[in-house]
Design a protein around this nucleic acid. Structure first.
Lengths: 141, 141
DNA sequence: CCCCAAAAAGACTATTTATATCTTTTTAGG
DNA sequence: CCTAAAAAGATATAAATAGTCTTTTTGGGG
């Protein structure tokens, strides 16, 4: 359970690739897609979503392509994931405080809240600069 | 993302209900289903899974029904969730160490490992006795 | 031995979500 | 105005989710 979709995986690959390029290097979608091994048409959809919320900047026409919207160290993994997958919701009951009519008496509700907090916290603690660096920031595995 | 399915939600409701009953009280599936508001046929499938791995004991025929397989305090929420949803896998790449051919150079791999660890840890820290108690073990929300 | 109660097992269905692809439109440069 | 490239929208396929229905097995009681 709790599995990231392909879309999420592809989104991360694509934007991490961008983060590894010089800040002013405009990248073609087709090049990015080829480099990170994702279907170009699919990646296009993903980058459109990124573009709408400013995670990347896009330029159309000749010489067009994509740039990172902000400095890589100011974009967290959480933002990237939530941009394409939506909010981190381990269970419906945590969507809004009042949403779940069982939450008054249900002891598992606070557990899901805690799960949500932990996951968000881990993902928020990682930025694209770290992810794009050649150095392994962590022990493998 | 990372959402528990209905099946998982129903599974928890059902087994927490059992955990709230006297240890030797054999409960009818139909009663459990009605009490926790889940489709009886669906809950039947879920309890069959529980039964196979010993989370609950089942008795057939007249006077049959279900009991908790072990003391409620010895069953963690993690076991219950994994029983019906499978292992906690935030991304395919964490399934097996060698499974992901990107894991050599991919910095996000260890992040997913950390997410997995945190989620498992939270769920493992909660048992059915706590979940079934009338006292709120935690602040609401 | 027969009947009834209840869970187990298996087949089947419908809906939704995931995973794309294809076509057309817009924008920009040369 | 021609070409390059992204944006937008429509469509297609496959898989997972969320169930239902039917038949079988098991066990108790008369």
């Amino acid at each position: 359970m709790m599995e990231l979709t392909r879309k999420g995986e592809y989104a991360i690959r694509g934007i991490v690739y961008l983060a590894g390029k010089p800040i002013d290097k405009v990248c073609l979608l087709s090049d990015i897609a080829a480099a990170v091994d994702v279907p170009p048409t699919f990646l296009a959809k993903i980058f459109q979503q990124f573009s709408k919320i400013g995670l990347v900047k896009s330029f159309r026409g000749t010489g067009g392509g994509f740039l990172l919207g902000r400095a890589a160290e100011n974009i967290t993994l959480l933002e990237v994931v939530e941009a394409v997958e939506g909010p981190i919701i381990p269970n419906r009951c945590v969507v809004t405080p009042s949403d779940c009519e069982r939450s008054d008496f249900c002891n598992v509700h606070p557990v899901w809240k805690r799960v949500q907090g932990e996951v968000r916290s881990v993902l928020e603690g990682v930025n694209l600069k770290e992810l794009a660096s050649k150095e392994r920031s962590d022990i493998n595995n």
